[in-house]
Amino acid sequence: MAAPHALSAAAPAGPSARSSARSSTRHTGWIADLAFAVLTVVLFVAVALATGVHNPWDGQIPLALFLGALLLVRRRWPMTVLLLSVAAVFAYHLAHFSPAGWIWPVAAAYFTAAGTSRVRWVVVVGVAELVYSAVDARMIIDRNLVRYLIHTFGEGLLLAALVAAGLAYAASQRRGDLLREAEYRARAAEERLSVAREVHDIVAHTLAVVGVHLNVAADTLREEPAEAAAALRLAQDVRNRAMKDLDSLITVLREGPAGTEPQPDVSSLGALVAGARAAGLDVTLHEHGDLSTIPAPASVAVHRVVQEALANTLRHSGATMAEVAVGRHARSVTVEITDNGKGDSSGGGVAEGNGITGMRERVRALGGTLTAGPAARGFAVRAEIPVAGSPE
């Protein structure tokens, strides 16, 4: 057994990753703020020049620069930016006769504030500005009624569109946050399940093997002290390996996979079988095909299935013999563990514990299938995991 290096692959993003994401979001937000500011300044000045203003420095350019500067802090103080922008437009129209609009110069401020919880106040401010603009432009009615209607209803439609766009954007942001939170929780749940499987595999196998050696030591302590000492040493070796595995697992959970050993895979099956033999189980290992070509996830799963099956055999079945067969085929890997322990030739059901459930979940995560139950002469566990094709 070795430390679970691949465990962190499914882990939720750590604090550094989330901090990087927030930094990227802030950077993008500043770009948007600057873009809104520049666009507001350019459009306002362009409209002023297009409507015949001869000296834009008299009021148009200072107002445009003020509105643009406010937009640089629109996300931090959206309502304050909106109120100051509207007040500046009011002051401008009181001091200058200008065909410049009332709503569109502060469009970005309306859009931003509409996405906050104070959207009702945004509507109130916008309607008040529209009413005042309609009254202020009443002298146009006699000269050009169509222009007055376009001015009044056009800005009303613009205000409605800005509020609707702000609400839609805020809803989209909230939906994205909920999806990210759900994804984070799903990854966290998957990681907890993965940790539970790893801990179960390590502890269950260790307790099974150590238990057998302790029983041997207890039975032979008086008559064969040398044999009892050997059994205790083997139990201690298994315990030390398990502690090393658990320590590496905790390291992965705390600090990530750097510096830990790779996951145990099919290359470790020999040591796994040797440990079961040392515990008194006559295990035969059959390997078919080139097992070195098995992809890492499937190779780890095969090791864990064999480990759990042998641990169950040692703990529960009373078996004296077991066979392990692992085959590498063109598009799949198969593994079968059978023993001569307590079986049911009638094919009766078997109560699944955490071990069998964990094996099935591990194999299913890779798109494979696993069956476990009584066989003709004992108990059998069979798994098939699909892998990329290669020559047999």
Rank of each mutant, 00 (worst) to 15 (best):
L67S: 06
Y92C: 02
V306Q: 02
A258R: 15
R360V: 10
T206F: 01
N312P: 01
A171I: 02
G368A: 00
Q236M: 08
Y169E: 14
A276P: 02
V335R: 07
V302D: 01
V212C: 06
E227C: 03
R382Q: 08
A325Y: 04
I103K: 12
Y132R: 12
R180C: 05
A351Q: 13
V216P: 00
V212Y: 05
L82R: 05
R233F: 07
T338R: 13
G275P: 00
L72K: 02
A11T: 05
G14E: 02
K244C: 02
S133F: 13
L67F: 06
A230P: 02
H27R: 15
A168L: 14
V300H: 09
D339Q: 08
A107H: 14
A301M: 01
F90A: 13
A164I: 03
L159W: 12
G368V: 00
A37H: 06
R174W: 01
P56R: 07
A274F: 04
V163Q: 04
T220C: 07
E336Y: 01
R75I: 00
V381D: 03
S390K: 08
R185D: 14
G52P: 08
G289I: 08
V306H: 01
A164Y: 09
L234Q: 09
T206M: 13
A196G: 12
S117H: 11
M79G: 00
R147I: 08
A276M: 01
P386D: 06
H5D: 06
I140C: 02
E223V: 11
A160V: 12
L71V: 00
V387I: 15
L157W: 15
L272S: 03
F36R: 13
G101L: 12
E361T: 06
F44A: 09
S117W: 11
G348S: 08
V252C: 07
H286L: 08
I337D: 03
H286V: 05
H27C: 09
A188Y: 09
L269A: 05
V86K: 08
Q263Y: 14
G318W: 04
T284H: 03
H288I: 14
A170H: 12
R187K: 14
T260C: 14
S98W: 03
A230R: 15
A278V: 03
S194M: 03
E129A: 15
L178H: 13
V273M: 01
D136Q: 06
G389S: 14
R233C: 10
I337S: 04
V335F: 07
E155T: 07
W104K: 03
D177G: 12
A376G: 00
R26V: 15
L179N: 12
A217K: 10
A37P: 09
G126C: 10
L291V: 05
